[in-house]
Design a protein around this nucleic acid. Structure first.
Length: 271
DNA sequence: ATGGGCACCTGGCTGC
DNA sequence: TGCAGCCAGGTGCCCA
């Protein structure tokens, strides 16, 4: 579910309450995630301080005194900040109890999320070391996109969703960004012009930025740290709008399948 | 090196 | 009402 805007919204939602706090207890209710949660974590995390709350791509990084927690929300995960004791519901996997009395509670029905702990530099962790530059980083620019697409015969939509090439963009924002860039999602990446690469870089950033401002997109499961949904869904141009009028030209939005995922686009605005 | 397809899971919706 | 079938914000891994 969560793409970069939802993860960033989560990060911002817990930053103020978590930074500087000490972990009084780490409780695992269900260790089954994409990879089983290390059973020695309660012992390793207890009493450590949360020094910083960062994000890398779609991963949340809780930097602790002695190491870093690497958390991924998968397709259906959410992390809520609970100010007081709250009854557990199904698919609550773990709690981080803070010395302030707040609890960070992770819930992930589909269990595609993950939690790792490393005492090394997280940037060199197996899951993070091959990731592309951050979309808001100067390194992600038109020259970069033009260069990496030259030997790619894959469709641009697929390239945008490949975390080793572009980071933070998932199925929603790939369609949204290409609409904003006025590029057809089926275009072979290697055939993009430099001008199109300029538009795509700007569009990726604009789509992500706009979604962050709205607190992310909630389609089904996603909730922010306060338990409320994100409000970007009503501002989507094409995602899940197949058969409806394009917000710009009123042509009917189309839905196709690419790499076993749905893609949405306007056949008029995007060539 | 690149690309395609599968796997991992649960729940909600649709249509018979 | 019940149930089968399909679909869903991700991504690592295996094979050609």
């Amino acid at each position: 579910m969560p793409e970069l805007p939802e993860v960033e919204t989560t990060r911002r939602g817990i930053e103020r309450s978590a930074r500087g706090r000490r972990i009084s207890e780490f409780r695992i209710y269900d260790h089954r995630l994409r990879w089983p949660i290390d059973r020695s974590l309660p012992q390793q995390l207890a009493d450590q301080q949360i020094v910083e709350v960062d994000r890398r791509a779609k991963y949340l990084l809780l930097r602790l005194t002695d190491g870093t927690l690497i958390l991924h929300l998968g397709m259906s995960g959410s992390l809520r900040l609970l100010p007081q004791e709250t009854a557990r519901i199904s698919h609550d996997q773990f709690d981080l109890l803070l010395d302030s009395g707040d609890t960070l509670r992770f819930n992930d029905p589909r269990r595609f999320g993950s939690l790792h702990y490393t005492t090394e530099d997280p940037a060199s962790h197996k899951l993070l070391r091959s990731l592309a530059p951050e979309p808001f980083d100067a390194a992600f620019n038109a020259d970069y996109l033009y260069r990496i697409t030259r030997r790619r015969s894959a469709a641009i939509k697929q390239v945008l969703m490949n975390g080793r090439l572009v980071t933070g963009v998932g199925n929603i924002y790939a369609s949204e960004a290409l609409f904003r860039a006025r590029v057809n999602p089926r275009r072979a990446a290697r055939k993009l012009s430099r001008a199109e690469c300029v538009r795509i870089v700007r569009a990726v950033r604009a789509a992500l930025q706009a979604a962050i401002r709205a607190g992310g997109t909630t389609l089904r499961d996603y909730v922010g740290t306060d338990g409320n949904p994100g409000y970007f869904r009503q501002k989507l141009y094409v995602y899940e709008r197949d058969g409806k009028a394009c917000r710009v030209c009123a042509t009917l939005v189309r839905k196709i399948t690419q790499g076993q995922r749905s893609t949405y686009f306007c056949p008029h605005c995007q060539h």
